[in-house]
């Protein structure tokens, strides 16, 4: 007995499903690449690849999950393509100032770090994610890119060093600063506000 064939979306139907996702794709591409033109390239290539691969898309899989998977590959392609431009840029950060705000000269914290409440409870998840994205967007360019490579593309540190041809110690400094800044930004814009 033959089972009925899996429903496969035709390209038109798929295009209609992809169109409303475009703003999300673009937002995530900008966040990762920090460059408008590259982000648009990545999204165009993603949509194109999705439509070309439409025949291979099984109705069962979720369209968004599938296309985000494609986007992540295209983002990495863009990062590779522009690796030199993104890493040669002058260091755009004052790590010292950040350090001075957080620690006393003897290495102690200036203030006791705050108790954070779970930011992902059902009611406020989306608002929190919006603040989180805004804080990631505010990271200086190189820090933002490597941080998103770690946390969004989920690439391990050694592979990032290889992709961008940078030394591990350089990567760790960038990530360290990115994490400190993100923490600071969330403290000011989420956790303080939430505890009021």
């Amino acid at each position: 007995m033959n089972r009925p064939p899996q429903p496969v979306l035709d390209a038109d139907a798929l295009a209609r499903q992809i169109e409303p996702l475009r703003p999300t794709l673009l937002r995530l591409a900008r966040l990762q690449l920090r460059n408008e033109a590259w982000a648009e390239d990545a999204v165009s290539e993603t949509v194109l690849a999705a439509l070309q691969g439409a025949a291979g898309f099984r109705g069962g899989a979720q369209v968004k999950t599938w296309i985000i998977g494609i986007l992540k590959h295209k983002l990495l392609d863009q990062l590779r393509l522009h690796a030199r431009e993104t890493t040669v840029a002058a260091d755009d950060d004052d790590g010292e100032a950040l350090d001075g705000e957080l620690y006393r000269r003897d290495g102690h914290f200036r203030e006791l770090p705050e108790k954070w409440a779970d930011p992902c409870s059902e009611l406020q998840r989306e608002q929190f994610f919006a603040v989180l994205e805004a804080c990631m967007e505010r990271l200086p360019g190189r820090q933002g890119r490597v941080f998103l490579m770690r946390e969004w593309l989920e690439i391990d540190s050694a592979a990032i060093c290889q992709e961008l041809a940078i030394a591990p110690t350089n990567l760790w400094i960038l990530l360290h600063r990115a994490r400190l800044r993100l923490r600071e930004c969330l403290q000011l814009n989420w956790f303080v506000a939430a505890s009021r």
Binding site: L132, W152, E154
Partner: peptide, 17 residues
């Protein structure tokens, strides 16, 4: 640890339908 978990949840939410 809270931030680690929050980033994981953010990642998930951004790739689910």
């Amino acid at each position: 640890l809270i931030l680690r978990d929050a980033l994981r949840q953010w990642r998930q939410s951004r790739q689910q339908d």
